[in-house]
């Protein structure tokens, strides 16, 4: 097929649309060797060609609809998920969204080359217009890929954040009926939610009467952190367990007083062992040296 003078009635996007549809196979063959597709579909070239065809089809649809510069064009919808998977694969191997976008830009040259071959005289204004339309379209594709790459990144970060939250808050059974959470690092709202939930779950699972929140590893206590602590204490109490906050370092104790934070009814102890001693004592459990009370048992 050659674009002849008779076709001149069609607008540039329409011509590009039908060009993409008819030359799908050739474009796909060339794109399959481009870094973007080659690096994602490492196993099978056929798979890469199929993926390319799907993208070309989508581009053709967008071109026909005339919305060359619209990243929300419905045509892109069909390949968005596939592009997202590809970006995610590239992102996992360390590519930045900018690098991925650069690889998409690399798809332009082979496609434009094929388009030029369609025209008997590539110097006519119509040929120029078509090349321009195709360039615009591929620019939009680049934006779509960029967007999916950023989404994939955000998702990855969010997942890691979740994992970190869970890893960073272990609940430990210290003794029959006593559980503890050693808090390390900054206590923000999301983290304190996780702490509260896991502590309360542990209280149920362990049938704990006492729960110790050890803040030795918490760098600062401001009014927000204090509020989180008090909420946790209040929730534990509603479930029938007593909560003890331990590990308040002198500097933090001073800050708490200076900020005028009222820890109110919260039971505090200087160290985790003091808190444990308190909890044991309240349960009538006595710990003594074996040699001191040799006759004990």
């Amino acid at each position: 097929m050659r674009v002849s003078e008779q076709d001149a009635a069609g607008s540039a996007p329409q011509i590009v649309g039908s060009f993409l549809e008819q030359r799908k196979e050739q474009i796909a063959q060339r794109w399959a060797d481009a870094p973007l597709f080659r690096s994602v579909f490492t196993v099978s070239r056929d798979e890469a060609v199929e993926a390319c065809k799907a993208v070309v089809e989508a581009l053709s649809e967008v071109a026909v609809s005339g919305r060359l510069e619209d990243v929300r064009a419905p045509g892109f919808g069909t390949v968005r998920e596939q592009l997202g998977r590809m970006s995610a694969t590239r992102a996992r191997t360390g590519s930045t969204p900018a690098q991925i976008a650069e690889e998409v830009a690399g798809l332009r040259a082979p496609a434009v080359e094929l388009l030029r071959e369609e025209f008997a005289d590539p110097a006519t204004p119509q040929a120029h217009e078509c090349v321009l339309a195709l360039t615009l379209l591929l620019g939009t594709l680049r934006l779509v890929v960029m967007e999916t790459a950023l989404d994939a990144n955000a998702e990855l970060i969010e997942r890691q954040r979740q994992q970190l939250l869970e890893v960073a808050t272990p609940v430990i059974k210290l003794w029959e009926g006593t559980v503890a959470v050693p808090l390390i690092g900054t206590l923000d709202s999301a983290r304190s939610q996780v702490v509260m939930e896991s502590l309360l779950e542990a209280i149920v699972d362990q049938r704990a009467r006492y729960a110790i929140l050890d803040i030795t590893g918490v760098p600062t206590v401001d009014s927000l952190v204090a509020q989180h602590l008090m909420k946790t204490v209040a929730a534990a109490r509603l479930m029938g367990a007593e909560c003890i906050v331990s590990g308040i370092r002198p500097a933090i104790a001073q800050t708490i007083v200076q900020l005028g934070i009222d820890l109110g009814s919260v039971l505090t102890r200087a160290s985790l062992s003091d808190a444990l001693a308190y909890a044991l004592g309240k349960q009538g459990i006595e710990v003594s040296r074996a040699d001191a009370g040799a006759s004990a048992r």
């Binding site: 998977r85 998702e155 969010e158 997942r159 979740q162 999301a190 939610q193």
Partner: peptide
């Protein structure tokens, strides 16, 4: 919904 539901785990 607070957390991204684990709908798309690492590798497919």
């Amino acid at each position: 919904v607070a957390q991204v539901p684990a709908s798309r785990p690492g590798v497919r």
